[in-house]
Design a protein around this nucleic acid. Structure first.
Length: 644
RNA sequence: GCCGUUGUAGCUCAGUGGUAGAGCACUUCCUUGGUAAGGAAGAGGUCGUGAGUUCAAUUCUCAUCAACGGCUCCA
């Protein structure tokens, strides 16, 4: 007998070799039907895999994340079975569950899969699922496994087998499909009731672009149609928040073939947002002791050789222009220019920390396939600044930067993000990272200390650092689930040496400063792209391109409407008047759709009493008030940068 | 850059081997209307670009550019 401990602490005895499924059945038949897998001492087990020792058991149903992955991974096997039926000779690589659904990578030889095939495959999968085939776990020796896939001619599975040894190899079989797989799986195919294959894409074998490109089919599945429908609806809703769609609808930015890919043109509405953000940055940085600088958009090759950027990033810089035998590059980063500003005049320790800031325009030749709306562009405006300080000052400076981040995030109501401490990879010293092992460890410890001592939650990730030092990246997710770095805060122990920067310390000897690179608001492009999605286009009043729209009931009140608009403009409020010969209902509808925060409806009553009827976007009619009162209230809302 | 898909009016999209249509937006007129779409008329496109097949191409083929979904990458 073995003892099974349940999540509530209850302990019961069962026969050795019992299964999660029979334990569930001993509780209730209904529960047994819902069990998809089980967590046994923290490891996810097939529901009908024998349990051989005392265990902490958690029965997993659809509501558990582990069960969902298991469910989706099992659906991936079902997909493989269907593909094998329709594309004989197909070879499979791997088919894991992902955050939302699953994929399977496969080599179709000279055959091609198109999106039309997906509908056929879905049908086939649904038919296979109905057969209620059990997922059988088969423990198998390496030799026999190799024989199986040699006969099948699947070199990808053979490649996988190379990394495995006897005793850890299992096959899973359902219906006519057998796969090398460590599992776990759901008990049978029956619970897979609703399947959607979402896309077919290419993916490099083992994620390496030098390898062959395999065909990847993405999909998702659910235990009932209702949940699938809800999921598809959610995707539709997410698309409405896509910054590319909102950016067009709200007149924020546009792209033009003649200008070039990845080169956004900021329309008047977008430019307002840019200027408000810059104003915020200026105020914040000025209060924090930064000075502003302006630098050219180009520089000679020699500077990027000094900085070390060129060898690392030549491929992602625009090719140089040659003039008078000199090569000039468009700047892909502001750092070297700023270092030259530090170096322009001799520095004393008394002048440190030396903080200089610039919304710097940079150009990066991102690969064509990497461009993505405003989130990944070739011309960007970076909320950049560099802080030159001594080692002793580093902690306070880095901490202050971190606090500035949090202050900004509060203003924007950003709470879904992950702070990522990005570290180097010792194996790539001298290649991807400057070869200064001791300095790496020292600065990484310094950064970690700031995070720990300020109780900032963070995750550590290897091999994500800048080439010159560790950094903290703030990771966010776009409306459609893509991950981006919104902001970055980096330590640089290398550029000071390379640019021979120094200051005179108290002992009257030269010392190399540490450099902090920081961009809490990232770039205008990515930040505004993010904000569009974050606010679903409904900017807070202070950021809204048009803050107030005056809506006259009819053109008899146009003069009064213009008076109101002028009063608003005089108060520094961005206001427009809808002077079209439309009915008020139509004007309201259009203004609502443009997501303009305030509508002031004016007609006979308002005109006679010098009032305005206030309507808030999304909230409806707020009643009538004297125009002066509204102006004062709006000014207050704007100056406090309230996020509503 | 790689795999796949797409490209028709300002926007969203129909459609066809015989040189194109809808709704919204726009212009004009009628309506002067009180909190999410009043009515009518009009204007607007060499069907992404280039070449090929054909008597004839927006439609078929190829190339190219761009966008989209992924992969790779992201200072």
């Amino acid at each position: 007998m073995i003892n099974i401990t349940f999540p509530d602490g209850a302990v019961r005895s069962y026969e050795k070799g019992t299964t999660a499924l029979s334990i569930a059945r001993s509780i209730s038949e209904g529960l047994a039907k819902k069990v998809l897998a089980a967590s046994v001492n923290g490891e996810v087990f097939d529901a009908h895999r024998p349990i051989e020792e005392d265990a902490l058991l958690r029965l997993l149903t659809w509501n558990d994340a582990e069960a969902k992955s298991t469910f989706w991974h099992s659906t991936a096997h079902l997909l493989a079975e269907a593909v094998e039926a329709q594309f004989p000779g197909v070879k499979f690589w791997v088919g894991p569950a992902v955050e939302q659904g699953f994929y399977y990578d496969m080599d179709l030889g000279d055959k091609k899969m198109t999106e039309e095939d997906l509908a056929q495959l879905e049908k086939k999968m649904a038919a296979l699922a109905q057969q209620d085939s059990p997922y059988q776990r088969i423990e198998i020796g390496k030799e026999e496994a190799i024989r199986f896939f040699t006969e099948k001619g699947d070199e990808y599975k053979l490649d996988l087998l190379q990394g495995l040894s006897d005793g850890e190899i299992t096959f899973y079989k359902q219906g006519n499909f057998t796969d090398l797989c460590r599992g776990p799986h759901i008990p049978s195919t029956a619970p897979i009731k609703a399947i959607k294959l979402t896309s077919v894409a290419g993916a490099y074998w083992k994620g390496n672009e030098k390898n062959k490109m395999l065909t990847r089919v993405y999909g998702i599945s659910f235990p009932n149609q209702k949940e699938l429908d809800a999921y598809l609806l959610m995707l539709e809703e997410a698309k409405k928040r896509d910054h590319r769609k909102l950016g067009k609808e709200l007149g924020i930015y546009t792209m033009d073939d003649d200008v070039g890919p990845g080169l956004p043109l900021w329309l008047p509405n977008g430019t307002v947002v840019i200027e408000e953000l810059e104003q915020l940055a200026k105020e914040t940085e000025s209060a924090a002791g930064y000075k502003r600088v302006v630098t050219p958009h180009i520089a000679k090759e020699s500077m990027y050789l000094t900085s070390g950027h060129l060898p690392y990033y030549a491929d992602s810089m625009f090719p140089p222009m040659e003039m008078d035998g000199e090569k000039y590059y468009l700047k892909a980063m502001n750092c070297p220019h700023h270092h030259k500003i530090f170096d322009a005049e001799p520095k004393s320790y008394r002048e440190l920390p030396f903080r200089i800031a610039e919304y710097g325009t940079c150009y990066r030749y991102e690969q064509s396939g990497e461009l993505f709306g405003l989130m990944r562009v070739r011309c960007l405006h970076m909320n950049d600044a560099h802080i030159y300080c001594s080692k002793e000052q580093f902690f306070d400076e880095f901490k202050a930067v971190n606090e500035m981040y949090l202050k900004y995030f509060k203003i924007f109501g950003i709470d879904k993000y992950v702070m990522r401490l990005s570290l180097h990879d010792p194996e790539k010293l001298g290649q991807k990272y400057v070869n200064e092992p001791a300095l790496w460890l020292e600065t990484e410890a310094m950064v970690r200390k700031v995070l720990v001592e300020t109780n900032t939650p963070f995750v550590e990730v290897q091999d994500e650092a800048a080439f010159y030092g560790p950094k903290i990246d703030v990771q966010i997710w776009s409306a459609i689930g893509r991950e981006f770095t919104l902001a970055t805060n980096q330590v640089d122990f290398n550029s000071g040496l390379k640019f021979k920067l120094s200051y005179t310390n108290k002992e009257n000897t030269p010392e190399v400063p540490l450099i902090i690179h920081r961009a809490p608001l990232g770039t205008h492009e990515r930040f505004i792209g993010f904000l569009l999605e974050h606010y679903a286009g409904k900017f807070p009043l202070w950021l809204a391109p048009v803050q107030v729209k005056v809506l006259p009931i009819s053109d008899k009140f146009l003069d009064y409407a213009h008076q109101v608009q002028q009063l608003l403009k005089d108060a520094g409020i961005r206001a427009e008047t809808d002077d079209r010969g439309e009915k008020i209902g139509k004007k309201i509808r259009d203004t609502e759709l443009m997501k303009i925060p305030y509508m002031l409806v004016v007609g006979e009553k308002e005109m006679n009493e010098q009032q305005v009827a206030v309507r808030r976007q999304g909230k409806g009619d707020l009643g009538t008030q004297p125009i002066g009162e509204f102006v004062a209230m709006a000014k207050q809302e704007i100056s406090s940068r309230k996020s509503e």
